[in-house]
Design a protein around this nucleic acid. Structure first.
Lengths: 141, 141
DNA sequence: CATGCTATTGTAAAAAGTTGCAATAAGGAA
DNA sequence: TTCCTTATTGCAACTTTTTACAATAGCATG
């Protein structure tokens, strides 16, 4: 259950506390390495920490996202999923078969600069999801 | 209650049916011209059509989105809102004050082409939401 | 204009997500 | 190590969203 990455100092440095609940949830996200729904996180983390409640999972995911340790993503139809924060990236999702592909943030830089100068907003490099058809599903048409 | 735009032929051409429920919901979205949450849509459409249920609102919004008559957008924290389909556009949202700005799709074209050639996906020009700080909130820092 | 097929709706119940509040426990200070 | 502050949790109630299914009603057809 000890984790190769220790998030406690990061959390304490901001004046918050490391708890078994937060540890279990980070542990699950870290070792899965994928997008997980709150229900998935609960299912897995509950094995390690039987007292854990779903309420705490929702609140903790929001807390971790606000502090940059996990990243929320809008996948599919209006439901949030979360993944451990690593490199900045975005997703393309096939609206037919649901396949997903990661893309790096770098190709977005030019567009971001352009939007920033035309709108005076300072943009976060927060996760963006694009929808389309993957190459397999294009053939199927 | 007669609407300046008649969506019935559009819907029938695809083999579906125009109903009072669909009409009322389109009417509300058309005349508001803004993003509305399912609850907002229900609140307004229910005035015109008292029998309308929330279940039907959710189903109808999903149906209309699937058929391109309304556009879903992920605003803020994981909740979907809908607006009547007009020109293609995207939104920048201030994560501090919630202000939102529309941007045209055209500046995105170059990025879309680039992503398409690197991933072999064919992208929809579906709505994308970016987060950041508006100019007022940048000053406030 | 009447008929039949089936898309669409309402109802009811379940699932997913949120909120308020009192009890608990993390971790800095003595 | 003990104490104290207050961040965090669990509980319970509530709101939002989804699903199953039988009843209803568009609308194409004759």
């Amino acid at each position: 259950m000890t984790c190769s990455v220790d998030y406690a100092p990061e959390i304490r440095a901001r004046g918050y506390r490391m708890t078994p609940q937060r540890h279990a949830i980070l542990h699950v996200l870290y070792h899965s390495g994928k997008h997980l729904s709150p229900a998935d996180v609960y299912k897995n983390a509950h094995k390690e920490l039987p007292g854990l409640t779903e309420t705490t999972v929702y609140r903790t995911l929001e807390f971790l996202a606000a502090n940059g340790l996990v990243r929320p993503a809008h996948i599919g139809n209006g439901h949030l999923v979360y993944e451990i924060a690593r490199h900045e990236h975005h997703h393309l999702i096939c609206r037919n078969c649901g396949a997903s592909t990661e893309v790096e943030h770098s190709p977005f830089e030019r567009l971001y600069r352009q939007l920033e100068s035309s709108t005076a907003y300072k943009l976060d490099s927060s996760h963006v999801t694009f929808f389309g058809l993957c190459s397999d599903c294009q053939k199927g048409k």
